[in-house]
Structures are given as C-alpha cells and as structure tokens.
Amino acid sequence: MRMKVLVIAAAFLAGISTAHAAGEKIELPDVEWSWEGPFGTFDKAQLQRGLQVYTEVCATCHSLNLLAYRDLAALGYGEEEIKAYAANYEVEDGPDDAGEMFTRVAIPSDRFLPPFPNENAARASNNGAYPPDLSLMTKARKNGANYLYAMMIGYSDEIPEDVALMEGMNYQKYFAGHQIAMPQPLYGDDIEYADGTEATLEQEARDVTAFLAWAAEPELEDRKSMGIKVLLFLGVLFVMVIAVKKAVWRNVKH
C-alpha cells in the first residue's frame, strides 16, 4: 500500500515537472521600481525623461491612444509647457462652416496623435507587423514593468544556434519564442536628456518603462495614498468593534 502511494506521488511530481518544461519559462530581470509597495510613488523627473524617450523613439511606431496632452500635467509640466508640447503635432479637425476638413495645431485636450492613421498603414510601414498601442502595456502583460524593461534591453547580436530567425525578425532573449518583429529600439545615447542625465541603454529603458507604467495607471499615487488612510481607519474601527462586541457579550455564557 505504502509503495503504491509513493509510486503515485512520484508520477505526480514527474508529471508536473515535465508539464513545466513544455512551456519554457522566461526569467525576466527584476528591477526595483519607485512605485512598488504600499508607499510607492512615481519619480516625476524620471517620468519626464521617459516621455522624452517615448516622444523621440517609441512614438515613431507606437500610439498612446488613451492619453491626452493635458494628462502631462501629472508629470509636473505647466499649462504653457503642455501647450508647447501639443503644438508639435497637427491634427485633422472639422468640418468647418464650408463643410471642409482642415488641419490645426494640437491643443492640450487632444489625445496623443497616433503615428499611423490606421492599422493597415501601420502594418504596411512595419513589415506586416502591428506595433501595439502602449497606453496599457504594463497592465496587459504579466509582470508588466519588468517585461517592458526586458523588451528594451533583451536584444543581442549573438543568436543562439537553436534559434532560427524568420525573415525580418529580430532575436530577443526575453520574448516568447525569442523572435520579435520590433527592431532594437534603444542602444544608449539615442537621445540627449533635457536634464543632463547620462543616456545609457538601461537608463533609457528604465525611464520609458516608468513613463508607460504611469500612462497605464495614472491613478496609482492617489489610489495608494487613499488606501493607507482607508486601512488605518478600518484598523482603528476594528479595535473599536471588538471592544463593543466584548462589552455586549460579557454576561453571556456561550
């Protein structure tokens, strides 16, 4: 009987380990992000640098549809700065009184201008691949921030022998299947940071990840600070209701 149990247990464990081997598990780098933990907040200087990386590199192919220029106020920009940033873009508006569509300079209430007018145009310019919208990227992937960071730094020219790259694909060690349509976006020194920070690859990758984490969860700081107050309140209330319950039940034998 005991032998039988052991055999079954062994078969069980063996089965689990083979099942895990089937879907290869990719170990993502584990970065310490400023917004992690119950007291975590975004670093505004970092978000501004990240915006610069997004604007100068990512925005060539990736949209950020859920964000409006006015949302940049959360990064510490003033009204005039946001107007100036939006003024770099031209959007189609209309129809005017004559029924004609026209283009005008973007204003803070406009959404971030997408790089392509539609999915087909995006695919046509990108070898058939569709660069996804980045507004929710850190929430739309497991371990999103580390995943995004890994996508920036995981490129390598040394391709392992067991990876046969398909036409137009690039080797990416953290991507499922290790081939990704996106060419390496960042190399280091791709941009000159306005605040003078040295633009290493890791620095750029961290900054743009922070910016996109904020873009996905702009409510994060409000949420956590309210959460602390709510839990404190409930904690005190808990002590009080326990005391009330004890007082009410003190004469009941049960």
Binding site: G227, L231, F238
Partner: peptide
C-alpha cells in the same frame, strides 16, 4: 470590518 479591511487591501494595493 475585517472583511472590508481585506476588500480594501485588494482594491487599493
């Protein structure tokens, strides 16, 4: 109150 505490912990954190 204990339930709301657990509930809030998930909602906020």
């Amino acid at each position: 109150v204990a339930f709301l505490f657990v509930f809030a912990a998930f909602v906020f954190f």
